[in-house]
């Protein structure tokens, strides 16, 4: 007798379920937006490490401004670009907590450049989760420092002209040069394999932040289907073909004593 679906769908057979550390609120993101997957990975790691009561997150300004509505942990929300300043204060006052910021590319690499670089340079002992979708998603798809050469955005409708607008800022490579960063990696979440690797990187960042040896910086190259004016599946393909050559995935800086 062939097995029926109802014999499979039983509580004892669950091998994957949504982590309870995500609240029941429907995510405010566009269909297929990587922000949701990245929220989930962070909360899965917090769940697995059993540090829900010891973790404090900082939400940015950008599409993920409401991250505190979705992650069931203590959170604050910072003024645009200032998440790392707030994280610095929180981690220094409560050094036994796991502290992270969650920031977009406009937030972290445009208006917040100074705060980002100086927090990295000071070697603050928290984690930065950096979501690079090459655009200002929330405000309608304006050019960001990370927008690719030739890529169209609402403020560069003919494509980014690097002669006038400069080259895309590889802020992740830049902070890797600073002595204060301990672990720097670039990941993505558009395929099952990428998700598995990205989750390891998130786990590493939380584990390393126990060492108090500096800042852990995890970039996710992600999509913005709405800003890029594509559907989610097309956007993920476009990201592979265009974003990854400029922002290659993988570890950029790993702790000397650690094999990752």
């Amino acid at each position: 007798m062939a097995m029926e679906i109802k014999d499979i769908i039983k509580p004892e057979n669950i091998v994957y379920r949504r982590t309870p550390l995500l609240t029941d609120k429907p995510l405010s993101y566009c269909p297929g937006c990587g922000h949701g997957t990245i929220h989930r990975l962070i909360m899965e790691v917090v769940e697995e490490m059993n540090i829900q009561d010891k973790t404090i997150g900082i939400a940015p300004v950008g599409c993920s401004v409401l991250a505190y509505e979705f992650m069931d942990i203590d959170m604050q929300q910072a003024a645009h670009g200032r998440a790392t300043a707030l994280a610095t204060a929180i981690k220094r006052l409560l050094p036994d907590r796991f502290v992270f910021t969650y920031q977009g590319d406009g937030d972290l690499a445009a208006i917040g450049t100074a705060e980002t670089i100086h927090a990295c340079n000071r070697g603050e002992n928290f984690i930065i989760f950096f979501v690079n979708n090459g655009i200002y998603g929330m405000t309608g798809g304006q050019m960001a420092p990370t927008t690719l050469p030739g890529m169209k955005a609402s403020t560069c409708p003919f494509g980014r002209d690097t002669k006038i607008m400069g080259n895309p800022l590889k802020i992740t490579e830049l902070v890797a040069q600073l002595q204060g960063t301990y672990y720097v990696t670039r990941q993505a979440v558009h395929t099952p394999n990428a998700v598995r690797k990205a989750k390891k990187a998130v786990r590493n960042a939380f584990e390393y932040s126990k060492h108090n040896k500096g800042l852990c910086f995890v970039e996710f190259v992600s999509n913005c289907n709405s800003g890029w004016k594509m559907n989610a599946v097309q956007a993920n393909k476009w990201m592979e073909e265009n974003m990854f050559p400029y922002y290659p995935l993988g570890d950029i800086k790993v702790p000397q004593s650690e094999k990752v």
Binding site: M3, N13, I14, Y16, T19, T37
Partner: peptide, 22 residues
């Protein structure tokens, strides 16, 4: 096969996966 691939890429985390040895 209950491999979980679909669930781990779902941005909204709306897939639950079940698996049995049959």
């Amino acid at each position: 096969t209950g491999c979980t691939n679909c669930a781990i890429v779902c941005p909204d985390g709306v897939i639950t996966v079940y698996r049995v040895k049959a």
